[in-house]
């Protein structure tokens, strides 16, 4: 059942992406597009790629808002790191620490870890069951992560499912 929903959704997504990439509306190319989407869905089913991890449908509606917030965080964090690099004294203060990850599923933890790595100044070194191993460039980065705002938002993005 779940495989059916995810598989259909993947096939539709792939067909839409094909149309967006190609832009041709001749019957031949549209048919080839449908065939390609079906072939890849079949192959992905065979590879066992389609589940809530490989095709996270449950995130669809909450994801755009999170992306907007994450973009703003990326821009802020970039400003700080650029200032550090351009400073002749290079005032870095690297540190390694752990932050708790309150997400229940693996995909939530992955989103959290990748969001951390995407904001320059902090890198996720390792993911364990309950927390993340972080390397930060400055004390600011550490304080920002330990405030737990990103953790909260990712948990909310992950939802109950």
């Amino acid at each position: 059942m779940n495989r059916l929903v995810h598989g259909t959704s993947l096939a539709l997504t792939l067909a839409v992406i094909w149309y967006l990439l190609s832009g041709h509306t001749e019957a031949l190319l549209l048919g080839l597009g449908c065939g390609s989407a079906a072939t890849i869905t079949w192959l992905a089913l065979r590879m066992d790629l389609i589940d809530h991890e490989g095709h996270p449908l449950h995130l669809t509606f909450r994801a755009p808002l999170f992306w907007v917030w994450l973009m703003w965080e990326i821009i802020k964090a970039n400003g700080q790191v650029i200032k550090i690099i351009l400073d002749p004294k290079l005032p870095i203060n690297p540190r390694r620490f752990r932050v708790p990850a309150s997400q229940k599923t693996d995909i939530g933890k992955v989103i959290y870890a990748n969001s951390i790595t995407l904001t320059p100044g902090t890198i996720c070194l390792d993911v364990t069951e309950s927390d993340l191993d972080i390397h930060a460039l400055t004390a600011d980065g550490e304080l920002g992560l330990k405030s737990g705002e990103m953790d909260r938002l990712v948990t909310r993005l992950e939802g109950d499912s």
Binding site: I74, V81, I85, P94, P120, G121, I123, H135, L137
Partner: peptide, 17 residues
């Protein structure tokens, strides 16, 4: 940057912003 892990932060700027 002085070492590998701090260099990753620098590389992150180019990859994101």
């Amino acid at each position: 940057m002085p070492d590998l892990f701090t260099r990753m932060h620098a590389a992150g700027i180019g990859d994101t912003l």
